[in-house]
Amino acid sequence: MRDPKTNEVTLPGKFIEIAEEVGLIQSIDHYVLHHSIKKLAELQKQGSKIKFAINLSGAVVDTPVLLPYLKKLIKRFDVDPTALIFEVTETVAVSNLYQAKLMMTAIKALGCRFSLDDFGVGFASFNYMRELPIDIIKIDGIFIKNLDINADDQLFVKALIDVAKGLGRKTIAEFVENEAILNILQEYGVDFAQGFYIGKPQQNLPVETH
C-alpha cells in the first residue's frame, strides 16, 4: 500500500493487523481477489498456463460473502478456476476447523485448490493435514532455514513430506536460501520450493483502483 503523504510503499506487515482490528480486511481481500483474477484472465487469454496463489485473511473463514463474490469474479472475467490456489495459514484454519472445512469444500467445488500456509507450527499439524480438504502443504520456513545444519529439522521435514505424500498432498518448502537446503529437500521428495535461492520478489507494476 502506498502512503498518501510520503508516496512510499508500506508493507502488509504494517497495515494488515490494523485492517483486521478496524474491520477493513474484507475490503482488502476483495481488492486482491478482483485484481488477481482480472490479471489471471488476461494472461490466460494470451495462452499462459500460469497459476496464481492468493493469500486470504483470517476473516474469510467466517464470512458468508466470499463464495458468492468469488463466483461473480470467475464468471465476470471468464477465468479458468483450476489456475487459482488459495492460501490460508494453519492457525486460521484450525481456529474454526468446521467452518474452514465448509469454506474450503465449497471453493474447491468451483475448481480452485487450497494451500495450507505456515504448516508445522500447530500442536496437532499432522491431524489437520488429514482433516482439511487441502491440496498443498507449505512447510513453515522455521523448519527449513537451518535444514542443512539441524538434524531435528531434517527429521521433522522428512516425516512431514512422507505423510503428505501418503495423503496425496503436494508440498512446498519456504525459506530455501541455499543450494545445500535445496539438495536435501530434493532428496526428501519435496514438490516445490520458494526462497531467495530460487528467486527474489520483484516489484509489481501499479494497479488501478475500482
Rank of each mutant, 00 (worst) to 15 (best):
M1W: 08
M1T: 10
R2T: 15
T10L: 14
F15N: 04
E21F: 06
V22A: 01
I28W: 13
I28G: 12
D29S: 11
Y31K: 14
H34T: 15
H34Y: 14
I37D: 08
L40D: 04
L40N: 06
A41N: 11
L43C: 11
G47R: 07
G47E: 04
S48M: 04
S48W: 11
K49D: 10
K49V: 09
K49M: 04
I50D: 12
I50L: 15
K51H: 05
F52M: 10
F52T: 02
L56C: 14
S57K: 05
G58I: 11
A59S: 12
D62Y: 05
L67S: 07
L67M: 03
Y69S: 14
Y69N: 10
Y69D: 09
K72H: 13
L73C: 08
L73V: 09
I74T: 03
V79F: 08
I85E: 04
I85A: 03
E87L: 11
E90L: 04
V92A: 15
A93H: 03
V94Q: 04
S95Q: 15
Y98P: 09
Y98L: 13
A100C: 12
K108I: 00
L110Q: 02
G111K: 01
R113E: 01
F114N: 01
L116G: 04
D118F: 00
D118R: 00
S125D: 01
S125W: 00
F126P: 00
F126K: 01
F126D: 00
N127H: 10
N127I: 08
M129F: 05
M129E: 00
R130F: 10
E131L: 08
L132M: 15
P133E: 02
I134D: 00
I139M: 02
I139E: 01
G141P: 02
I142C: 03
F143R: 00
F143A: 02
N146W: 13
L147H: 02
L155H: 10
I161H: 03
K165H: 15
G166E: 07
G166Q: 14
R169C: 12
K170N: 10
T171C: 12
A173I: 09
N178S: 07
A180T: 09
I181V: 06
I181Q: 09
I181K: 03
I181A: 08
I184S: 10
I184R: 14
V190C: 13
F192M: 10
F192W: 05
F192L: 12
A193K: 05
G195H: 07
Y197R: 10
Y197Q: 06
Y197D: 06
Y197C: 12
I198D: 03
I198F: 04
G199N: 06
Q202I: 11
Q203G: 14
V207Y: 11
T209W: 13
T209Y: 15
T209P: 15
